[in-house]
């Protein structure tokens, strides 16, 4: 067993874990944060995406011990004070989800995208989310949801000034 300390959604957790325990299982089974879903076991589907020190990672392909000393954000950490964050609101407004299983990973990946590129084009959104599979929506409304969030966040951030456009990264970190 190994002793780890991980910050998850702002709270510190110290636990004894088996070295082989996957981060996804640590979050789900140990911390009971079941919003992070497991869809494929092979890093293809992205349902288990969480932020690790701000970068989207697939938590089914990372050991809990590798998260020692790091800061993890899961879907449960997106909303603050009961208020939906713009990406969550955007997914609801634009019907960007159906069964809801891929949605947490999709929203976490979108959060990372908007962090580095607050005004992404459709092309940039599709590339950034291409490591997250959805079987229900056909992606059309997911793209719209991310655009909705981008606009809402820009309006929130600086209603009088246009937000500065960050250069788009070449490739999504989750790809």
């Amino acid at each position: 067993m190994a002793r780890i300390t991980v910050t998850v959604n702002g709270a510190d957790h110290t636990d004894e874990v088996e070295p082989r325990l996957l981060l996804a299982h640590y979050l789900r089974d140990k911390l009971r944060l079941t919003g992070t879903h497991i869809g494929c076991d092979t890093t293809n589907c992205g349902a288990c995406t969480v932020l690790c020190d701000g970068l989207p990672v697939k938590s089914c392909t990372m050991f809990a011990v590798q998260a020692d000393g790091r800061e993890i954000i899961t879907v449960e950490g997106l909303a603050t004070g009961g208020q939906l964050q713009p990406i969550q609101q955007g997914f609801k407004e634009e019907h960007g989800l159906q069964c809801g299983f891929c949605t947490p990973g999709m929203m976490v990946a979108a959060t990372a995208l908007l962090e580095r590129n607050p005004d992404p084009s459709e092309e940039e959104i599709r590339w950034a989310l291409s490591g997250n599979v959805c079987r229900c929506t056909g992606y059309v409304n997911i793209v719209k949801a991310v655009r909705w969030a981008a606009q809402a966040m820009q309006e929130q951030a600086a209603p009088e000034e246009p937000a500065t456009r960050q250069p788009a990264t070449e490739q999504a970190a989750t790809r």
């Binding site: 079941t34 919003g35 992070t36 879907v75 449960e76 969550q88 989800l97 809801g100």
Partner: peptide, 8 residues
């Protein structure tokens, strides 16, 4: 949607 977008 409210429960799904919260991971709930």
């Amino acid at each position: 949607d409210d429960r799904f977008v919260r991971g709930r």
